[in-house]
Design a binder for these strands. Structure first.
Length: 479
RNA sequence: CGGGGUGUAGCGCAGCUGGUAGCGCGCUUGGUUUGGGACCAAGAUGCCGCAGGUUCGAAUCCUGUCACUCCGACCA
Protein backbone atom coordinates (compact mmCIF):
# COMPACT_ATOMS: atom_id res chain seq x y z
CA UNK A 1 0.00 0.00 0.00
CA UNK A 2 2.76 2.39 0.88
CA UNK A 3 4.31 1.58 -2.43
CA UNK A 4 1.00 2.06 -4.25
CA UNK A 5 0.82 5.49 -2.76
CA UNK A 6 4.29 6.33 -3.87
CA UNK A 7 3.46 5.32 -7.42
CA UNK A 8 0.24 7.27 -7.49
CA UNK A 9 2.09 10.39 -6.41
CA UNK A 10 3.93 10.38 -9.69
CA UNK A 11 0.75 11.12 -11.59
CA UNK A 12 -1.56 13.77 -10.20
CA UNK A 13 -5.11 12.38 -9.96
CA UNK A 14 -7.43 13.67 -12.69
CA UNK A 15 -10.06 14.97 -10.30
CA UNK A 16 -7.53 16.95 -8.36
CA UNK A 17 -5.98 18.84 -11.27
CA UNK A 18 -6.75 17.75 -14.81
CA UNK A 19 -4.14 19.96 -16.44
CA UNK A 20 -1.40 18.67 -14.17
CA UNK A 21 -2.61 15.10 -14.76
CA UNK A 22 -2.29 15.67 -18.50
CA UNK A 23 1.23 17.05 -18.18
CA UNK A 24 2.27 14.23 -15.85
CA UNK A 25 0.96 11.58 -18.22
CA UNK A 26 2.65 12.86 -21.35
CA UNK A 27 5.95 13.10 -19.53
CA UNK A 28 5.82 9.85 -17.56
CA UNK A 29 4.62 7.91 -20.58
CA UNK A 30 7.50 9.40 -22.56
CA UNK A 31 5.38 10.83 -25.34
CA UNK A 32 7.10 14.21 -25.48
CA UNK A 33 9.75 16.34 -23.96
CA UNK A 34 9.84 20.09 -23.75
CA UNK A 35 12.45 21.64 -26.02
CA UNK A 36 14.45 24.79 -25.63
CA UNK A 37 12.25 26.45 -28.24
CA UNK A 38 9.28 28.15 -26.61
CA UNK A 39 5.99 26.46 -27.36
CA UNK A 40 7.54 23.62 -29.31
CA UNK A 41 7.88 20.02 -28.26
CA UNK A 42 10.12 17.07 -28.90
CA UNK A 43 7.94 14.14 -29.90
CA UNK A 44 9.73 11.10 -28.49
CA UNK A 45 9.74 7.65 -30.09
CA UNK A 46 6.72 6.36 -28.19
CA UNK A 47 4.66 9.45 -29.02
CA UNK A 48 5.83 9.54 -32.62
CA UNK A 49 4.95 5.87 -33.07
CA UNK A 50 1.34 6.73 -32.22
CA UNK A 51 1.42 9.43 -34.88
CA UNK A 52 2.87 6.98 -37.39
CA UNK A 53 0.01 4.60 -36.74
CA UNK A 54 -2.48 7.43 -37.12
CA UNK A 55 -0.80 8.37 -40.39
CA UNK A 56 -0.88 4.83 -41.68
CA UNK A 57 -4.59 4.38 -40.98
CA UNK A 58 -5.56 7.77 -42.35
CA UNK A 59 -3.31 7.61 -45.38
CA UNK A 60 -4.87 4.30 -46.32
CA UNK A 61 -8.30 5.92 -46.16
CA UNK A 62 -7.14 8.90 -48.25
CA UNK A 63 -5.78 6.59 -50.94
CA UNK A 64 -8.98 4.56 -50.87
CA UNK A 65 -10.92 7.74 -51.63
CA UNK A 66 -8.68 8.57 -54.58
CA UNK A 67 -6.21 11.05 -53.09
CA UNK A 68 -2.51 11.41 -53.83
CA UNK A 69 0.23 12.75 -51.62
CA UNK A 70 2.30 15.74 -52.65
CA UNK A 71 4.68 18.15 -50.99
CA UNK A 72 4.57 21.92 -51.11
CA UNK A 73 7.24 24.42 -50.02
CA UNK A 74 7.21 25.52 -46.41
CA UNK A 75 7.60 29.20 -47.36
CA UNK A 76 4.91 31.47 -48.76
CA UNK A 77 5.79 34.83 -50.36
CA UNK A 78 3.88 37.61 -48.65
CA UNK A 79 2.17 38.63 -51.88
CA UNK A 80 0.78 35.14 -52.33
CA UNK A 81 -0.60 35.01 -48.81
CA UNK A 82 -2.28 38.38 -49.41
CA UNK A 83 -4.37 37.19 -52.34
CA UNK A 84 -7.44 36.04 -50.45
CA UNK A 85 -8.64 38.79 -48.10
CA UNK A 86 -10.44 36.79 -45.39
CA UNK A 87 -7.74 34.17 -45.38
CA UNK A 88 -4.87 36.55 -44.76
CA UNK A 89 -6.84 38.43 -42.11
CA UNK A 90 -7.48 35.17 -40.31
CA UNK A 91 -3.86 34.05 -40.28
CA UNK A 92 -1.78 37.23 -40.34
CA UNK A 93 -1.68 37.62 -36.55
CA UNK A 94 -0.01 34.28 -36.08
CA UNK A 95 2.45 33.80 -38.91
CA UNK A 96 6.22 33.65 -38.57
CA UNK A 97 8.21 35.66 -41.09
CA UNK A 98 11.54 34.98 -42.73
CA UNK A 99 13.17 38.30 -43.51
CA UNK A 100 16.77 37.32 -44.20
CA UNK A 101 18.53 34.76 -46.32
CA UNK A 102 21.98 34.39 -44.85
CA UNK A 103 23.01 37.95 -44.15
CA UNK A 104 21.00 39.51 -46.98
CA UNK A 105 17.61 41.02 -46.42
CA UNK A 106 14.98 39.50 -48.72
CA UNK A 107 13.24 41.80 -51.18
CA UNK A 108 9.97 40.10 -50.27
CA UNK A 109 9.61 38.45 -46.90
CA UNK A 110 8.42 34.86 -46.72
CA UNK A 111 6.00 33.46 -44.21
CA UNK A 112 6.45 30.01 -42.76
CA UNK A 113 3.26 28.23 -43.80
CA UNK A 114 0.49 28.31 -41.22
CA UNK A 115 -1.54 26.28 -43.76
CA UNK A 116 -1.02 25.78 -47.49
CA UNK A 117 -4.18 26.91 -49.28
CA UNK A 118 -2.34 29.67 -51.09
CA UNK A 119 0.43 27.35 -52.28
CA UNK A 120 -1.99 24.77 -53.58
CA UNK A 121 -4.00 27.47 -55.31
CA UNK A 122 -0.88 28.92 -56.89
CA UNK A 123 -0.01 25.46 -58.17
CA UNK A 124 -3.53 24.59 -59.30
CA UNK A 125 -3.67 27.82 -61.30
CA UNK A 126 -0.76 26.47 -63.34
CA UNK A 127 -1.81 22.88 -63.81
CA UNK A 128 -5.55 23.09 -64.30
CA UNK A 129 -6.71 24.08 -67.78
CA UNK A 130 -9.41 21.67 -68.83
CA UNK A 131 -12.26 19.80 -67.22
CA UNK A 132 -10.09 16.77 -68.05
CA UNK A 133 -7.63 17.96 -65.37
CA UNK A 134 -10.30 17.68 -62.69
CA UNK A 135 -10.73 16.70 -60.00
CA UNK A 136 -7.40 17.29 -58.33
CA UNK A 137 -7.30 15.25 -55.15
CA UNK A 138 -4.12 16.11 -53.26
CA UNK A 139 -3.01 15.65 -49.72
CA UNK A 140 0.18 16.56 -47.92
CA UNK A 141 1.73 15.44 -44.64
CA UNK A 142 3.85 18.18 -43.15
CA UNK A 143 4.27 20.54 -40.27
CA UNK A 144 2.93 24.07 -40.05
CA UNK A 145 3.75 27.01 -37.82
CA UNK A 146 1.32 29.26 -35.98
CA UNK A 147 2.74 31.74 -33.51
CA UNK A 148 0.36 30.98 -30.68
CA UNK A 149 0.50 32.87 -27.42
CA UNK A 150 -0.45 30.01 -25.16
CA UNK A 151 0.83 26.55 -25.87
CA UNK A 152 0.29 23.07 -24.52
CA UNK A 153 1.85 19.83 -25.75
CA UNK A 154 -0.15 18.24 -28.59
CA UNK A 155 -3.12 20.56 -28.10
CA UNK A 156 -1.45 23.77 -29.17
CA UNK A 157 2.18 24.17 -30.16
CA UNK A 158 3.96 26.69 -32.37
CA UNK A 159 4.79 24.00 -34.84
CA UNK A 160 2.59 20.97 -35.27
CA UNK A 161 2.38 17.97 -37.56
CA UNK A 162 -0.70 17.49 -39.64
CA UNK A 163 -2.15 16.46 -42.93
CA UNK A 164 -3.94 18.86 -45.20
CA UNK A 165 -6.03 17.69 -48.10
CA UNK A 166 -6.63 20.18 -50.90
CA UNK A 167 -8.93 19.37 -53.74
CA UNK A 168 -10.26 21.15 -56.82
CA UNK A 169 -13.50 20.16 -58.54
CA UNK A 170 -15.49 21.12 -61.60
CA UNK A 171 -18.74 21.78 -59.79
CA UNK A 172 -20.04 23.10 -56.50
CA UNK A 173 -21.90 19.84 -55.94
CA UNK A 174 -18.75 17.78 -56.30
CA UNK A 175 -16.88 20.00 -53.89
CA UNK A 176 -19.64 19.72 -51.34
CA UNK A 177 -19.69 15.94 -51.70
CA UNK A 178 -15.95 15.82 -51.17
CA UNK A 179 -16.16 18.04 -48.09
CA UNK A 180 -18.70 15.77 -46.45
CA UNK A 181 -16.98 12.59 -47.63
CA UNK A 182 -13.76 13.55 -45.87
CA UNK A 183 -15.58 14.67 -42.74
CA UNK A 184 -17.11 11.21 -42.66
CA UNK A 185 -13.71 9.60 -43.16
CA UNK A 186 -12.46 11.48 -40.10
CA UNK A 187 -15.46 10.52 -38.00
CA UNK A 188 -15.20 6.88 -39.02
CA UNK A 189 -11.48 6.91 -38.27
CA UNK A 190 -11.99 8.45 -34.84
CA UNK A 191 -14.53 5.83 -33.85
CA UNK A 192 -13.04 2.74 -35.47
CA UNK A 193 -9.38 3.45 -34.86
CA UNK A 194 -9.12 5.85 -31.94
CA UNK A 195 -12.30 4.68 -30.17
CA UNK A 196 -13.34 8.32 -29.83
CA UNK A 197 -16.99 9.18 -30.52
CA UNK A 198 -17.41 12.53 -32.28
CA UNK A 199 -20.23 14.93 -33.03
CA UNK A 200 -20.32 15.86 -36.70
CA UNK A 201 -21.67 19.20 -37.71
CA UNK A 202 -21.27 22.55 -39.35
CA UNK A 203 -19.47 25.55 -37.89
CA UNK A 204 -21.29 28.84 -37.54
CA UNK A 205 -20.17 31.85 -39.61
CA UNK A 206 -18.22 33.12 -36.61
CA UNK A 207 -16.28 29.90 -36.15
CA UNK A 208 -15.68 28.91 -39.75
CA UNK A 209 -12.24 28.83 -41.40
CA UNK A 210 -10.78 32.05 -42.76
CA UNK A 211 -11.73 32.13 -46.44
CA UNK A 212 -14.15 29.18 -46.42
CA UNK A 213 -17.72 29.15 -47.64
CA UNK A 214 -18.59 26.49 -45.07
CA UNK A 215 -16.64 24.61 -42.42
CA UNK A 216 -17.61 21.22 -41.04
CA UNK A 217 -16.13 19.74 -37.91
CA UNK A 218 -15.88 16.72 -35.70
CA UNK A 219 -16.02 17.62 -32.03
CA UNK A 220 -14.95 15.31 -29.24
CA UNK A 221 -15.49 15.60 -25.51
CA UNK A 222 -12.62 15.17 -23.10
CA UNK A 223 -12.79 13.55 -19.67
CA UNK A 224 -13.05 16.90 -17.94
CA UNK A 225 -15.94 18.08 -20.10
CA UNK A 226 -13.87 20.35 -22.32
CA UNK A 227 -14.52 19.98 -26.04
CA UNK A 228 -11.85 19.49 -28.65
CA UNK A 229 -12.20 20.32 -32.32
CA UNK A 230 -10.62 17.17 -33.68
CA UNK A 231 -10.78 17.64 -37.42
CA UNK A 232 -12.23 20.05 -39.95
CA UNK A 233 -13.35 19.89 -43.54
CA UNK A 234 -13.92 23.10 -45.50
CA UNK A 235 -15.83 23.91 -48.63
CA UNK A 236 -14.22 26.94 -50.28
CA UNK A 237 -16.73 27.30 -53.06
CA UNK A 238 -15.00 29.27 -55.81
CA UNK A 239 -13.69 32.01 -53.51
CA UNK A 240 -10.05 31.01 -53.68
CA UNK A 241 -10.39 30.16 -57.37
CA UNK A 242 -11.52 33.72 -58.11
CA UNK A 243 -8.79 35.22 -55.96
CA UNK A 244 -6.10 33.12 -57.63
CA UNK A 245 -7.62 32.82 -61.09
CA UNK A 246 -7.98 29.04 -61.18
CA UNK A 247 -10.10 28.44 -64.27
CA UNK A 248 -10.76 25.56 -66.60
CA UNK A 249 -12.53 25.15 -69.90
CA UNK A 250 -15.62 22.96 -69.60
CA UNK A 251 -17.07 20.57 -72.20
CA UNK A 252 -18.98 23.38 -73.89
CA UNK A 253 -15.84 25.51 -74.18
CA UNK A 254 -16.84 27.89 -71.38
CA UNK A 255 -14.32 29.21 -68.86
CA UNK A 256 -15.28 28.15 -65.32
CA UNK A 257 -13.83 28.62 -61.87
CA UNK A 258 -13.00 25.46 -59.92
CA UNK A 259 -14.61 24.65 -56.59
CA UNK A 260 -12.24 23.72 -53.81
CA UNK A 261 -12.07 21.97 -50.48
CA UNK A 262 -9.53 21.46 -47.77
CA UNK A 263 -9.50 19.22 -44.72
CA UNK A 264 -7.07 18.42 -41.96
CA UNK A 265 -6.28 16.66 -38.73
CA UNK A 266 -3.26 17.17 -36.53
CA UNK A 267 -1.14 15.68 -33.76
CA UNK A 268 -3.81 17.18 -31.55
CA UNK A 269 -5.55 13.83 -32.01
CA UNK A 270 -2.93 12.37 -29.69
CA UNK A 271 -4.05 14.86 -27.06
CA UNK A 272 -7.59 13.66 -27.61
CA UNK A 273 -6.58 10.03 -27.12
CA UNK A 274 -4.90 10.91 -23.83
CA UNK A 275 -7.79 12.98 -22.50
CA UNK A 276 -10.59 10.69 -23.63
CA UNK A 277 -9.23 7.31 -22.55
CA UNK A 278 -6.58 8.00 -19.90
CA UNK A 279 -7.03 7.34 -16.19
CA UNK A 280 -5.20 7.93 -12.91
CA UNK A 281 -2.67 5.22 -13.74
CA UNK A 282 -1.71 6.95 -16.96
CA UNK A 283 -2.34 6.40 -20.64
CA UNK A 284 -4.89 3.99 -22.02
CA UNK A 285 -4.18 3.54 -25.70
CA UNK A 286 -6.76 2.37 -28.19
CA UNK A 287 -5.32 -0.92 -29.53
CA UNK A 288 -5.39 0.07 -33.18
CA UNK A 289 -2.85 2.87 -32.73
CA UNK A 290 -0.94 1.53 -29.72
CA UNK A 291 2.77 1.25 -30.63
CA UNK A 292 2.93 -1.85 -28.46
CA UNK A 293 -0.28 -3.86 -28.39
CA UNK A 294 0.99 -6.71 -26.24
CA UNK A 295 3.85 -6.47 -23.78
CA UNK A 296 5.29 -9.83 -22.86
CA UNK A 297 6.70 -9.96 -19.34
CA UNK A 298 8.70 -13.03 -18.32
CA UNK A 299 8.33 -13.89 -14.64
CA UNK A 300 11.33 -15.32 -12.83
CA UNK A 301 13.18 -14.91 -16.06
CA UNK A 302 16.41 -16.26 -14.60
CA UNK A 303 14.80 -19.67 -14.28
CA UNK A 304 15.42 -22.31 -16.88
CA UNK A 305 13.26 -22.07 -19.95
CA UNK A 306 11.31 -18.92 -19.04
CA UNK A 307 13.08 -16.49 -21.35
CA UNK A 308 13.08 -19.03 -24.17
CA UNK A 309 9.32 -19.52 -23.83
CA UNK A 310 8.68 -15.79 -23.58
CA UNK A 311 10.77 -15.13 -26.69
CA UNK A 312 8.99 -17.86 -28.58
CA UNK A 313 5.59 -16.41 -27.67
CA UNK A 314 6.72 -12.89 -28.63
CA UNK A 315 7.94 -14.16 -31.98
CA UNK A 316 4.67 -15.99 -32.63
CA UNK A 317 2.60 -12.93 -31.74
CA UNK A 318 4.78 -10.55 -33.71
CA UNK A 319 3.39 -12.02 -36.89
CA UNK A 320 -0.11 -10.84 -36.09
CA UNK A 321 0.10 -7.94 -33.62
CA UNK A 322 2.62 -5.38 -32.39
CA UNK A 323 4.22 -7.41 -29.60
CA UNK A 324 7.31 -6.74 -27.56
CA UNK A 325 9.07 -8.53 -24.72
CA UNK A 326 10.63 -6.74 -21.77
CA UNK A 327 13.43 -8.91 -20.45
CA UNK A 328 15.23 -6.07 -18.70
CA UNK A 329 16.29 -6.78 -15.13
CA UNK A 330 13.58 -4.61 -13.59
CA UNK A 331 11.22 -6.49 -11.29
CA UNK A 332 7.92 -7.70 -12.72
CA UNK A 333 6.02 -5.29 -10.48
CA UNK A 334 7.96 -2.39 -11.92
CA UNK A 335 7.19 -3.53 -15.44
CA UNK A 336 3.48 -3.95 -14.69
CA UNK A 337 3.25 -0.35 -13.56
CA UNK A 338 5.44 0.97 -16.33
CA UNK A 339 3.37 -0.50 -19.14
CA UNK A 340 0.12 0.46 -17.49
CA UNK A 341 1.39 4.01 -17.39
CA UNK A 342 2.26 3.73 -21.06
CA UNK A 343 -1.23 2.50 -21.87
CA UNK A 344 -0.27 -0.81 -23.48
CA UNK A 345 -3.63 -2.55 -24.09
CA UNK A 346 -2.59 -6.09 -23.18
CA UNK A 347 -0.01 -7.51 -20.81
CA UNK A 348 1.10 -11.09 -21.18
CA UNK A 349 2.77 -12.72 -18.18
CA UNK A 350 4.56 -16.01 -18.52
CA UNK A 351 6.39 -17.69 -15.66
CA UNK A 352 7.42 -21.16 -14.48
CA UNK A 353 3.92 -22.00 -13.19
CA UNK A 354 2.35 -21.01 -16.49
CA UNK A 355 4.81 -23.00 -18.50
CA UNK A 356 4.02 -26.03 -16.36
CA UNK A 357 0.30 -25.59 -17.07
CA UNK A 358 0.79 -24.67 -20.74
CA UNK A 359 -0.89 -21.30 -20.31
CA UNK A 360 -0.18 -17.58 -20.04
CA UNK A 361 -1.80 -14.75 -18.09
CA UNK A 362 -3.34 -11.92 -20.11
CA UNK A 363 -4.27 -8.68 -18.35
CA UNK A 364 -6.36 -5.96 -20.00
CA UNK A 365 -5.35 -2.34 -19.45
CA UNK A 366 -8.90 -1.03 -19.74
CA UNK A 367 -10.59 -3.31 -17.17
CA UNK A 368 -7.49 -4.84 -15.52
CA UNK A 369 -9.28 -8.14 -15.95
CA UNK A 370 -6.98 -11.16 -15.79
CA UNK A 371 -7.56 -14.21 -17.97
CA UNK A 372 -5.65 -17.46 -18.27
CA UNK A 373 -5.23 -18.53 -21.86
CA UNK A 374 -3.82 -21.85 -23.11
CA UNK A 375 -0.69 -21.22 -25.14
CA UNK A 376 -2.04 -22.77 -28.30
CA UNK A 377 -4.98 -20.32 -28.35
CA UNK A 378 -2.85 -17.17 -28.30
CA UNK A 379 -3.11 -16.44 -32.01
CA UNK A 380 -6.88 -16.25 -31.80
CA UNK A 381 -7.41 -14.92 -28.28
CA UNK A 382 -4.99 -11.98 -28.44
CA UNK A 383 -6.57 -10.31 -31.51
CA UNK A 384 -10.01 -11.02 -30.07
CA UNK A 385 -9.11 -9.35 -26.81
CA UNK A 386 -7.65 -6.33 -28.60
CA UNK A 387 -10.94 -5.95 -30.48
CA UNK A 388 -12.89 -6.25 -27.26
CA UNK A 389 -10.75 -3.58 -25.67
CA UNK A 390 -11.39 -1.27 -28.62
CA UNK A 391 -15.12 -1.88 -28.35
CA UNK A 392 -15.11 -1.31 -24.63
CA UNK A 393 -13.14 1.93 -24.92
CA UNK A 394 -15.53 3.28 -27.52
CA UNK A 395 -18.55 2.31 -25.42
CA UNK A 396 -17.09 3.86 -22.30
CA UNK A 397 -16.20 7.06 -24.12
CA UNK A 398 -19.64 7.21 -25.72
CA UNK A 399 -21.32 6.73 -22.37
CA UNK A 400 -19.23 9.50 -20.86
CA UNK A 401 -19.98 11.77 -23.80
CA UNK A 402 -23.69 11.14 -23.45
CA UNK A 403 -23.60 11.71 -19.70
CA UNK A 404 -21.87 15.02 -20.24
CA UNK A 405 -24.24 16.22 -22.93
CA UNK A 406 -26.85 18.57 -21.49
CA UNK A 407 -29.76 20.58 -22.76
CA UNK A 408 -30.41 24.19 -21.83
CA UNK A 409 -33.50 26.24 -22.64
CA UNK A 410 -32.70 29.27 -20.47
CA UNK A 411 -29.43 31.11 -19.99
CA UNK A 412 -29.59 30.46 -16.25
CA UNK A 413 -29.39 26.72 -16.95
CA UNK A 414 -26.67 27.30 -19.52
CA UNK A 415 -24.55 29.19 -17.01
CA UNK A 416 -25.09 26.67 -14.26
CA UNK A 417 -24.02 23.80 -16.53
CA UNK A 418 -20.89 25.56 -17.70
CA UNK A 419 -19.91 26.44 -14.17
CA UNK A 420 -20.70 23.15 -12.44
CA UNK A 421 -20.71 20.30 -14.96
CA UNK A 422 -18.95 21.27 -18.19
CA UNK A 423 -19.72 19.31 -21.32
CA UNK A 424 -21.71 19.72 -24.52
CA UNK A 425 -24.71 21.98 -24.11
CA UNK A 426 -27.53 21.57 -26.57
CA UNK A 427 -29.32 24.88 -26.91
CA UNK A 428 -31.35 26.68 -29.55
CA UNK A 429 -29.96 29.67 -31.40
CA UNK A 430 -31.59 32.42 -33.47
CA UNK A 431 -28.73 32.58 -35.95
CA UNK A 432 -27.64 36.03 -34.83
CA UNK A 433 -23.91 36.60 -34.40
CA UNK A 434 -24.60 38.99 -31.50
CA UNK A 435 -26.09 36.18 -29.39
CA UNK A 436 -23.14 33.93 -30.13
CA UNK A 437 -20.70 36.67 -29.14
CA UNK A 438 -22.61 37.42 -25.97
CA UNK A 439 -22.73 33.79 -24.89
CA UNK A 440 -19.00 33.53 -25.34
CA UNK A 441 -18.42 36.78 -23.50
CA UNK A 442 -20.59 35.80 -20.56
CA UNK A 443 -19.86 32.10 -20.18
CA UNK A 444 -16.64 31.32 -22.05
CA UNK A 445 -18.48 28.72 -24.11
CA UNK A 446 -18.36 28.84 -27.89
CA UNK A 447 -20.61 27.32 -30.49
CA UNK A 448 -19.00 24.01 -31.38
CA UNK A 449 -21.27 23.04 -34.25
CA UNK A 450 -24.72 22.72 -35.70
CA UNK A 451 -25.00 18.94 -35.47
CA UNK A 452 -25.93 16.72 -38.40
CA UNK A 453 -27.42 13.87 -36.42
CA UNK A 454 -29.38 15.81 -33.84
CA UNK A 455 -31.97 18.34 -35.01
CA UNK A 456 -34.36 18.18 -32.10
CA UNK A 457 -36.02 21.52 -31.39
CA UNK A 458 -35.48 21.62 -27.66
CA UNK A 459 -37.22 24.99 -27.57
CA UNK A 460 -38.81 27.49 -29.96
CA UNK A 461 -36.74 30.35 -28.64
CA UNK A 462 -33.08 31.32 -28.81
CA UNK A 463 -31.45 30.47 -25.51
CA UNK A 464 -29.93 33.93 -25.31
CA UNK A 465 -32.29 36.53 -26.80
CA UNK A 466 -35.57 34.62 -26.68
CA UNK A 467 -36.38 35.41 -30.30
CA UNK A 468 -37.45 32.71 -32.70
CA UNK A 469 -34.89 29.91 -32.82
CA UNK A 470 -33.40 28.76 -36.10
CA UNK A 471 -31.36 25.76 -35.14
CA UNK A 472 -29.96 23.56 -32.41
CA UNK A 473 -26.32 24.26 -31.58
CA UNK A 474 -23.85 22.30 -29.49
CA UNK A 475 -21.95 24.66 -27.23
CA UNK A 476 -19.02 24.07 -24.96
CA UNK A 477 -15.75 25.25 -23.59
CA UNK A 478 -12.99 24.32 -26.00
CA UNK A 479 -9.27 23.76 -25.90
C1' C B 1 -0.79 40.77 -24.63
C1' G B 2 -2.42 40.84 -19.13
C1' G B 3 -1.98 37.92 -14.22
C1' G B 4 0.56 34.17 -11.21
C1' G B 5 4.63 30.40 -10.55
C1' U B 6 9.52 28.35 -11.26
C1' G B 7 14.86 28.34 -12.75
C1' U B 8 20.40 24.42 -7.94
C1' A B 9 23.05 16.84 -10.70
C1' G B 10 19.22 13.31 -15.94
C1' C B 11 14.27 14.02 -12.89
C1' G B 12 11.86 15.87 -8.26
C1' C B 13 13.41 19.04 -4.58
C1' A B 14 16.22 21.19 0.06
C1' G B 15 19.76 24.93 1.14
C1' C B 16 18.18 31.59 0.68
C1' U B 17 19.03 35.24 8.85
C1' G B 18 26.05 35.54 3.21
C1' G B 19 31.68 31.45 4.38
C1' U B 20 32.22 28.10 -1.65
C1' A B 21 26.37 22.67 -2.31
C1' G B 22 23.08 18.49 -0.32
C1' C B 23 18.71 14.78 -0.17
C1' G B 24 15.44 11.27 -2.79
C1' C B 25 14.85 8.88 -7.38
C1' G B 26 17.58 7.66 -11.58
C1' C B 27 22.62 6.27 -13.65
C1' U B 28 27.49 2.92 -13.44
C1' U B 29 29.94 -1.66 -11.35
C1' G B 30 29.56 -6.22 -8.45
C1' G B 31 26.47 -9.53 -5.75
C1' U B 32 21.75 -11.36 -3.87
C1' U B 33 16.67 -11.04 -5.84
C1' U B 34 12.31 -11.54 -9.44
C1' G B 35 3.85 -13.56 -9.81
C1' G B 36 2.33 -5.59 -8.40
C1' G B 37 7.54 -0.04 -8.69
C1' A B 38 13.43 -5.44 -4.52
C1' C B 39 17.99 -5.28 -1.36
C1' C B 40 23.31 -4.67 -0.06
C1' A B 41 28.03 -2.58 -1.24
C1' A B 42 31.12 0.63 -3.99
C1' G B 43 31.08 4.72 -7.44
C1' A B 44 30.11 8.91 -11.23
C1' U B 45 27.46 13.33 -12.18
C1' G B 46 26.98 20.71 -10.77
C1' C B 47 29.36 27.87 -15.20
C1' C B 48 23.25 27.13 -8.36
C1' G B 49 19.30 30.22 -15.86
C1' C B 50 22.32 34.61 -17.60
C1' A B 51 24.55 39.67 -16.83
C1' G B 52 25.78 43.42 -13.64
C1' G B 53 26.17 45.32 -8.53
C1' U B 54 27.07 45.18 -2.92
C1' U B 55 30.92 42.41 -0.06
C1' C B 56 37.25 40.15 2.06
C1' G B 57 33.66 36.45 0.35
C1' A B 58 27.17 35.52 -3.21
C1' A B 59 23.23 29.65 -4.80
C1' U B 60 21.92 33.01 -0.74
C1' C B 61 21.22 40.27 -0.66
C1' C B 62 20.10 44.20 -4.78
C1' U B 63 19.16 45.49 -10.07
C1' G B 64 18.33 43.92 -14.78
C1' U B 65 17.53 40.17 -18.25
C1' C B 66 16.25 35.51 -20.46
C1' A B 67 13.74 31.01 -20.45
C1' C B 68 10.11 27.66 -19.16
C1' U B 69 5.35 26.86 -17.06
C1' C B 70 0.17 27.70 -15.44
C1' C B 71 -4.39 30.85 -15.76
C1' G B 72 -7.07 34.42 -18.98
C1' A B 73 -7.95 37.09 -24.33
C1' C B 74 -6.74 34.70 -29.74
C1' C B 75 -6.36 30.13 -32.36
C1' A B 76 -6.21 23.19 -34.74
Amino acid sequence: MAQDKKFVEEITPMDQDFTQWYTDVIKKAELVDYSSVRGCMVIKPYGYAIWENIQKELDYRFKQTGHENVYMPMFIPESLLQKEKDHVEGFAPEVAWVTHGGSEQLTERLCVRPTSETLFCDHYKNCIQSYRDLPKLYNQWCSVVRWEKNTRPFLRTLEFLWQEGHTAHATAEEAQEETIRMLNVYAEFCENVLAIPVVKGQKTEKEKFAGAKATYTIEALMHNGITLQSGTSHNFGDGFARAFGIQYTDKSNQLQYVHQTSWGVTTRLIGAIIMVHGDDSGLVLPPRVAPIQVIVIPISQHKEGVLEKASEITARLSGIVRARMDDSDKTPGWKFNEYEMKGVPLRLEVGPKDIEKGQVVLVRRDTREKVFVPMDELETRVPELLDEIHKNLLEKATRLRNEKTYTAVEMSEFRRIIETTPGFIRAMWCGDRACEDAIKEETGATSRCIPFDDNERVSDKCVYCGKEAKTLVYWGKAY
